[in-house]
Each structure stands twice: as structure tokens, then as C-alpha cells.
Nucleic acid binder design. Structure first.
Lengths: 125, 125
DNA sequence: CGGTATCCGAGACGATACTG
DNA sequence: CAGTATCGTCTCGGATACCG
């Protein structure tokens, strides 16, 4: 693709591809809500596959949003929590989550209407 | 995958898969900034492929976030703008975009540090 | 328990060519 | 100008199996 005429869009794009994916957002939301969570707790809570959770957590740790604490007990115990940077991400994410919950019905309605109109269109043709 | 233990996560996930992808977010940001934009203007501005822009816009229109106005002139002219629902999406999206711009350096730093540590680890082994 | 390694299908995405 | 159609590629992400 051609580079964007707008450099800001390129950079926002860049950050969004890092921490903007679905699983990252959901992990941050969960940690924000519960403070500290173990691997399998997160897994069950989100309904995410082991593989994706592992990858997502590693990326989040790498980006400095999440801290990983390993307790070498038997059985092993690993706890994940938000770093200060992760905490700062809470606000915008929370806003997004709230908007999502609030406007889901409106989106569903718009979608139904659009589909109905498209269906009517087909009859005309 | 197993269903999430947390139903809220399921719903947030649902909305995010609709309007949470990278291109949708960037289109909304652009429209929020300029008010009204034509197809190719958006295309150049974002550095998006024709195909993805077409798909993204259709989805956004279907979800009721973006309005499409067709002027049957020669050459044709199509204008895209935010609907009221789309406008309401501006706030959370703006928060996200600002956070992204503001914390990109911190993320880069964290990432560099993480990678350096990983590199040092390899030498030990 | 908390991962990693491997495999594989489905969908995302870009490039290109064509249409009204 | 504003798309649609088709194609090939590449990444996402689940399933499965195995390790410390």
C-alpha cells in the first residue's frame, strides 16, 4: 500500500496494531477489574484459547502494559497485573467498553434496518 | 473455544469485532476531523487499499456510524460523514487515539528494554 | 499449573484488472 | 471518480499434543 498522506494516521495505526487487538483490550479490561489474575483464571474468564492468551500476554508484557510475576511453587503460580502504563490505558479502554455496551442495541437496530433495505432492493431488481 | 465465564466480555468482544478494527477506527477519526470526505480523499489520507476502504465503509454504514451520500454527477461524487451514532463514537475513539500518540514512546522504550533483556538471557544460556 | 510446539483452516488484506 | 471482482498471500487463531 501507499503510505498515508497523514502521518498521524500511520502512527495511530501503529499503536493500534500493537495494543488495539481484541484480546489485548479484553485482557486489560479484566486485569483492570480484578487487579491480579492467574493464567487459567484469565483463560476461563475470557474464553480465550491457551495459545492466544499466551501470545497476547507476552506482547502486553513486552509493551510494558502488563507485569508477570512467577512464583516457583508446586504447582507453579503466575500472576498478571497492570503496570502503571497499563493503568493509564484503562481510561480510554473503559470509555470504549462502555460505549460498546451502551450502543450495541443501536448498532443492531441500524444493521437490521440496513439489511431489510438491502432485501427490499433485491425484490425491485 | 469455550464460552467466556464473563458474559460482558462476550458482548464487548462482539462490538469490538464490529467497529473495533484498525481501519474502522481510522476512518471514524478522519471523518471526525474533516467532517465530510470523498472516497478517494479518505483513501489517500489513510493509505488504505481501495478494497479495504470499500468494505470498511460499507460495514460502518451498515452499523449506522457513517452516512453515504451519492451525487449522480459526472464524474460521480460520493460523500461520507458521521451519523449521530458515529459522532457519539468520537469521544471514546479520540481518547484512544490520544493515548496512542502520547504513549507510543513509552511502549517503544518498554519494548526495547524487553528485547535487550531477552537478548542478554540468550547469552547466559 | 502454566506454558511451548506443531498443524491447519478461515478470514484479512493488498495488488491488479475491469465497469458505470 | 467510485467502486466490484478475482486472486494470491499472509496472519489470526483454534485444536492438539507435549514439557517442566
Amino acid at each position: 500500500m501507499a503510505e498515508p498522506q497523514c502521518p498521524e494516521c500511520g502512527r495511530i495505526n501503529e499503536v493500534l496494531s500493537r495494543v488495539g487487538d481484541r484480546w489485548s483490550v479484553l485482557v486489560v479490561i479484566s486485569l483492570a477489574q480484578y487487579g491480579v489474575l492467574r493464567f487459567n483464571a484469565l483463560k476461563r474468564h475470557l474464553g480465550i484459547s491457551q495459545r492466544m492468551l499466551s501470545l497476547t500476554l507476552r506482547e502486553l508484557e513486552r509493551d510494558g502494559l502488563v507485569s508477570r510475576t512467577y512464583h516457583p511453587t508446586i504447582p507453579p503460580k503466575v500472576e498478571y497485573a497492570l503496570t502503571p502504563l497499563g493503568e493509564s490505558f484503562r481510561e480510554p479502554v473503559k470509555a470504549l467498553g462502555l460505549w460498546a455496551l451502551e450502543h450495541l442495541p443501536a448498532i443492531d437496530a441500524a444493521r437490521a434496518e440496513y439489511d431489510a433495505a438491502a432485501e427490499a432492493e433485491k425484490k425491485t431488481a
